[in-house]
Design a protein around this nucleic acid. Structure first.
Lengths: 217, 217
DNA sequence: TTAATTTGTTAGTCTAATCTAACTTTATTA
DNA sequence: TAATAAAGTTAGATTAGACTAACAAATTAA
């Protein structure tokens, strides 16, 4: 049996390896908020269990088995976020921390029912794709808002930071997954960016624009 | 912060103390499936935390603080069972084991939404009362089916055993919370009992009738 | 009331998951 | 390339929650 803690390591390992080719102990340590020696020893354990390829001072990569376990956790997480938002009417800035807990429930029946009630959704309320029951994840190409140019029209599809604080901030600017916007201006001096969404015009700092992910339209 | 494990001890302590005045280490040990020395040491810890009154070789009783924590866990459990049955359409024999996990989620918002969606239910699908947010539990008087006499009409309100096996067995006999029945016969030889529910007539052994709780009508 | 049984406790061990301190390897930079 | 900084590991400690073995108290029965 796979523990709560192990599921957490696996999920975060997967998330990191989707953004970077090869994950370091430091990166995982920061992401989990767990000190490096602890991560090192967990990775040794994972190597024995066959979840990762790992040798000292080298990068960590998920094996097929580790990836498939991780995808299941990610599926449970994203399915839960979708359920909390669409069925229970909980704000998208609140669902993340609840889903972090529910994702560790062991009950295929429970998650099967969720899936059914949601009519087998393909993306979660943050715009992220939900892995299938078979562990297939269709990753649509996405870019940082900060990498967009003046005149481009984009759709907000995700974020790099799921903290409640950040999501609440985005909400206050009218920015949620699915929202479309046009880049009106990029200030060369500080790379801050002006975007028009519907009837709102918002100025976002580079720090913010780095954390907002979009699809070009 | 109260842990997953502690919540489990508290909830089961409450359940036992609702049936018996004063709970023994052995009883709690059996209920939790945890060996007696482990229970003893947890009770020492609980005494320090102020959750129980406990001195060696004496019965365990919950303090006001322990009881109120326990009632909150019980509330989460029963609210969840109701939600799983009524909103998600999961069979009442399946919900128990899922609720055992969800009851440990820390999110007033999540359980508040559940409560709202269910229109503030007073009983769970097993017929058990749900403690209020304020920690008040209205216990209706109930008796074992095995203690009923011929000719009495009863309503099934609960069970003594929430295992899936037992609940599935009851289901197969058409026995669910809310179902009414009339005692047709009690066999003196083995105390087995014949009950008429709607158009069905079922013979239940003493072992079964002991685990079925009813209200007289 | 003594013996046997049941219940409960003590003492010590184990595992999972965390930590800090100290050291080593790898990468960066002067 | 040698010094410094960053990243990673080793070793050892800690805590929570579980266990077994052995002993002690309380209860029950002979």
């Amino acid at each position: 049996m796979i523990t709560f803690t192990e599921e957490n390591y696996l999920k975060n390992l997967l998330l990191l390896s989707m953004e970077h080719e090869g994950v370091s102990v430091l990166m995982l340590s920061k992401k989990l908020g767990i000190k490096m020696p602890t991560v090192t020893s967990m990775m040794k354990k994972f190597a024995v269990k066959g979840f990762v390829n790992f040798s000292p001072y080298k990068q960590i990569t998920l094996t097929a088995s580790g990836k498939s376990e991780a995808l299941l956790v990610l599926r449970k997480h994203r399915l839960t976020e979708t359920f909390l938002t669409r069925v229970m009417g909980i704000g998208w800035e609140e669902v993340h921390s609840i889903a972090e807990q529910i994702e560790h429930i062991q009950s295929p029946l429970f998650f099967g029912k969720m899936d059914e009630m949601l009519h087998y959704p393909e993306t979660d309320p943050h715009g992220e794709p939900i892995p299938t029951k078979e562990g297939v994840l269709i990753q649509q190409p996405k870019m940082r808002l900060s990498a967009c140019r003046v005149g481009e029209t984009v759709r907000l599809t995700g974020v790099n930071d799921s903290s409640k604080e950040f999501l609440t901030f985005l909400n206050s600017k009218g920015l949620k997954p699915g929202v479309r916007g046009k880049i009106e201006h990029v200030e060369p001096y500080d790379s801050s960016l002006t975007i028009i969404c519907g009837d709102r015009k918002e100025v976002l700092s580079k720090t913010i624009a780095d954390k907002v992910l979009v699809e070009l339209m």
